[in-house]
Amino acid sequence: MIRQARAAARNALRTGVILFVFALVATALLVFTFSRTESTIERSEQAEKLTLLGQVLPPALYDNDLLASQQGVAPHELLGTRQPSAMWIARRGEAITAVVLEAIAPDGYSGNIHLLIGIGIDGTVTGVRVTAHRETPGLGDYIVRSKSLWIEQFAGTSLTRPEARRWKVAKDGGQFDARAGATITPRAVVKAVHGALHYFARNRAALLAEKAASGEETAP
């Protein structure tokens, strides 16, 4: 009995050491790779985000570092958000030209539709993109840019163009067309974009003032 226990302890020591050596080697390998790729990965991730922002913001509108301009926005009903969301400020030279807001359309056919909405300083939509959704494939997912051009029709709209009663899908007598059999999803998106415009209009001053201040802080 005791001899067996002793043999087991000896074996435990042996296997423990061997596994330890392997773990050490593997971790060393990981540390090495990680240190070599860290900066590249960070650059890739930034570039990725920038590309997305670039899609809702014409390049002519900004020359600042968009990523650095990220700010927090308190949750608001018009944005459909319940948690703080992000917003980015575009500047050309010193002047603020546009903002990019995160918004959520809560009344999609199956849950929330996450949007990125670019709004010019004059209240004109510069572009809209869907970043996440769970709409029925083939039915409601044409709101995604890679499936169709539908989302492009928001570019150039504003609170007054078209007028408020035309901010609806065609089936409800509005200006935005929607595919037959699937009007719930576009309805939700239209409503969300409209809401975001209202939000911008209402908080324009506060947003821009605050941002200008913070922008100055970061400026050299």
């Binding site: 043999a7 074996n11 435990a12 296997t15 061997i18 596994l19 330890f20 773990a23 971790t27 990981l30």
Partner: peptide, 22 residues
């Protein structure tokens, strides 16, 4: 990270080695 890995490895390895004989 290295410490966590190493500690885990030693404990696991020892447990397995002990159990295999015991």
């Amino acid at each position: 990270a290295i410490l966590v890995m190493a500690f885990g490895a030693v404990v696991l390895g020892a447990a397995l080695g002990y159990a295999a004989v015991r």
